[in-house]
């Protein structure tokens, strides 16, 4: 990374192309998120699915969207982010336990 501090224009162009490719990936993941949102709202607005099917599908669509945010928009898929990924997985794990715990207490 320090080598890049004195880059010439050639490397700069390379970097720009790389950034552009990354942006393309982001645009695709944004389109996927919009599609997931449309499907989710569509399911509820049209009422095509019964409650028992609709809720798991809605939750699944939310999880898919969040995965896109984390992995693409927030760069978790990139190399050298294992520690940051570990931190957020820890948070998600504790979050899942919290929601399951509170849900279980109410249900039973």
């Amino acid at each position: 990374m320090t080598d890049n501090a004195n880059t010439n224009n050639v490397v700069d162009e390379y970097q720009k192309t790389k950034n552009k490719e990354e942006l393309k990936g982001h645009l695709i993941s944004f389109a996927m998120m919009i599609v997931a949102t449309l499907i989710a709202f569509g399911i509820v607005a049209s009422g095509v699915m019964g409650k028992i099917y609709a809720i798991p599908v809605l939750v699944l669509l939310a999880v898919v969207q969040v995965a896109f945010q984390f992995y693409y928009f927030m760069h978790l898929k990139e190399k050298g982010n294992s520690m940051t990924a570990l931190l957020i997985y820890g948070g998600i794990w504790a979050a899942a336990l919290t929601v399951t715990g509170l849900g279980a207490i109410t249900w039973w």
Partner: peptide
């Protein structure tokens, strides 16, 4: 900041859990 976000995840999870209940 990712450490902070991990904590925020837990904060919102407790609010979501409460809401679902």
């Amino acid at each position: 900041f990712w450490f902070f976000l991990g904590g925020e995840t837990v904060l919102f999870a407790s609010l979501f859990g409460t809401y679902i209940s």
